[in-house]
């Protein structure tokens, strides 16, 4: 009995602790299982399972909430989980969905490359896969449709907003980019095209003097805007590809006492961004509609399941949000 050496010597209380523990775990699990589920059989017509990149970001939370509401209205049940940006976790969630025999799987992939084998597993089980916000362009993964913001159109709207401000006077404009993100490349493309078309018309020119990395984040946007001001003290406008970098740029302008000279156009329509627009700190935002994305996914699934034609990509248009919209916005009161 050599092997007994390392183990505990006292067995007092073992039984009691063991049963207490068992009861505790079972009670906890029973409680949540019964409290949460609407019956494990799902909705009357089936289950739509959703694994989102994260639920910490309100953008995805809104997608999930509206998807669940629309699913319920159509007689389905939605199972929404967060992958917490962990690809392995997302993979396991999809495996569980497949075993559960759900009717559709909706993903915003944690990684467009690593998600391919995961989607292939769902394909092999004959379950339709939809992606939202983040696409998976690999042809080996079969996806019914990808639903996202029309970033190119949004970029064009941002360009038009810049013309509203600088159209009469012209001036130098800097772009705070995030080149790693395909969505941001499209935003800048649309923006540039509108400005270039405007300049061809003659009259005062809007010059795109620099394009620097704003990191899509407040701190990097702040530093980038400071650098832009050093290079071009007579800057008149900044287009930032999202709200955090736009707000970072605004802070840099305030520090340099140039807030009135330079107009900022952001992108997103996060609450902070909307507040800044209402207070006149930013000129405008093309805003995204995560709520519509959630609803469109369910509609696309129903269409698919009825055998109707579903476009391989569904783009949700953005809408320009200016100070006047902020003053009317009930969410900001």
């Amino acid at each position: 009995m050599e092997m007994d050496k390392g183990r505990g010597l006292s067995y007092n209380g073992g039984m009691k602790g063991f049963f207490g523990w068992t009861l505790g775990v079972l009670a906890a699990v029973t409680l949540v299982s019964c409290g949460e589920k609407g019956g494990s059989e799902g909705g009357a017509r089936g289950t739509i399972a959703v694994s989102l990149l994260t639920l910490e970001n309100p953008f995805f939370k809104i997608i999930g909430d509206h998807l669940a509401a629309e699913a319920k209205a159509q007689g389905f049940e939605a199972l929404i989980v967060s992958a917490d940006k962990d690809m392995a976790k997302q993979g396991n969630q999809v495996k569980d969905f497949i075993v559960k025999g759900v009717d559709a799987i909706v993903l915003s992939p944690c990684d467009p490359k690593s998600v391919v084998p995961v989607i292939q597993e769902a394909n092999a089980a004959g379950i339709p896969v939809f992606t939202v916000d983040i696409p998976c362009p690999d042809p080996e993964a079969k996806i019914v449709t990808q639903i996202a913001t029309d970033n190119y159109g949004g970029g064009r709207e941002a360009g038009m907003a810049m013309i509203e401000v600088l159209g009469k006077s012209g001036g130098k404009v800097a772009i705070l980019h995030l080149k790693q993100a395909q969505s941001c490349i499209l935003r800048v493309k649309g923006f540039r095209e509108v400005i270039d078309a405007f300049n061809v018309k003659g009259g005062p020119k809007i010059e795109l003097v620099m394009e620097i990395d704003g990191g899509g984040a407040r701190d990097i946007g702040y530093r980038a805007a400071e650098d832009a001001l050093q290079a071009h003290p007579d800057l008149r406008g900044i287009f930032a590809i999202n709200d955090p970098s736009a707000l970072g740029a605004r802070a840099a302008l305030e520090k340099a006492n140039k807030a009135d000279q330079i107009a900022i156009i952001g992108f997103d329509g996060m609450k902070e961004g909307k507040v800044a627009i209402k207070e006149g700190k930013m000129y405008a935002d093309p805003i995204q509609f995560p709520d519509r994305m959630g609803v469109e996914i369910v509609k696309a699934f129903v269409k698919w399941s009825l055998g109707e034609e579903v476009a391989p990509e569904i783009l949700i248009p953005t809408q320009l949000y200016r100070k006047a919209d902020g003053e009317k916005d009930p969410d900001l009161k």
Partner: peptide, 13 residues
């Protein structure tokens, strides 16, 4: 973890 996924318990819980 698997059981909770099968019984529709959401992430936070």
């Amino acid at each position: 973890q698997n059981g909770m996924n099968l019984t529709n318990v959401e992430s936070y819980t």
